[in-house]
Amino acid sequence: MASDIRIKAKLTGDTAEVKTLMKHDMETGTRKDKKTGETVPAHYITEVKCELNGKLVMTANWGPAVSKNPYFAFTVKGAKAGDVLKVSWVDNKGGGSSAETTLG
């Protein structure tokens, strides 16, 4: 399942600019299926964790108001080439995924 997160990281000096794209429907729970007329149950990412060499850098808590296939960009300080950056998410149904990349 690692392929559903894309990470792009650019290291300049000791800061890494990280851009991530996750594949997720991010259903709000208010949308109706046009064919059946039934409400589509909520299904969205609740928590995204970013770790640098296993140390937590940032936790993003999300509600259903984050767009489908979320884009998330942030900056990490004190990074160097060879550092491992890991991004993982969990959703409200207990699903999850993670991916990592090596800076350089």
Binding site: V57, M58, N61, W62, G63, P64, A65, F74, V76
Partner: peptide, 29 residues
């Protein structure tokens, strides 16, 4: 926070010491 959304809080980012104070994402309104 999106004031007029049914649930106004869209996203909340907890920053550790290693993170710069800059985030971007895309939200629904």
């Amino acid at each position: 926070i999106v004031v007029e959304n049914p649930s106004p809080l869209a996203a909340s980012f907890d920053l550790g010491p290693g993170a710069s104070a800059a985030v971007s994402t895309r939200i629904k309104m």
